[in-house]
Design a protein around this nucleic acid. Structure first.
Lengths: 92, 92
DNA sequence: GCAATAACTTACTTAAAAGTACTATAGTTG
DNA sequence: CAACTATAGTACTTTTAAGTAAGTTATTGC
């Protein structure tokens, strides 16, 4: 379960639950993430087949990320985790 | 969510879902874990209030771990994760 | 009195994750 | 033609997680 065994993957997946987002927007939803970790994270999620990456050949570049079917199947789990985090106060 | 953001915490919690276990038994359920990481993991889980630790003042020592109410509330999530891991093949 | 026991601890080392800072791309705008 | 854009890559450092190996405790049983 190296999907959740990182600081950022669950967060990124979580923000995609509501729908596809382009790279910049997604990254702004996770303000503390460094540029490097962001691309690294989405690349790994893509490798695992949890999200798909769609590149529009325009300038400046435009890239959109969306959950794959497999990624969507994580939805309930991510939401449970999120909810659990709120219910049971600050664990950090 | 530093509960799952580690290699061992989810595993240890998972094994406690079925009921309390004494230290040695729990550790054997996770054979690859090092001695140090085991105690460190249960200590942190205890600090987070997810498990409770019961010491029997006998020699040789006997210690039992059980999920707290809060730990139990993670049950469904842990099981979903476990199931998800099986369904969707090898992710490492 | 010395080994065995179960649970832990401590000091030290290695490996993995994350952060910082800088560079690349290629059209568009001024 | 230089600056700006959005996305990504790379080299290097720091931080954090995990592993190894040894030691501690207090009793029992030989």
């Amino acid at each position: 379960m190296s999907l959740i065994g990182t600081k950022w993957k669950p967060l990124v997946l979580f923000h995609l639950l509501e729908g596809p987002l382009r790279s910049g927007v997604l990254q702004k939803k996770v303000p503390e993430i460094s540029n490097k970790m962001f691309t690294q994270t989405v690349r790994e999620l893509e490798t695992y087949g949890l999200i798909s990456r769609k590149v529009f050949p325009v300038v400046p570049p435009k890239v959109e990320y969306r959950l794959s079917a497999r990624g969507k199947s994580l939805g309930p789990i991510l939401q449970s985790l999120d909810q659990w985090g709120f219910e049971d106060c600050g664990l950090s």
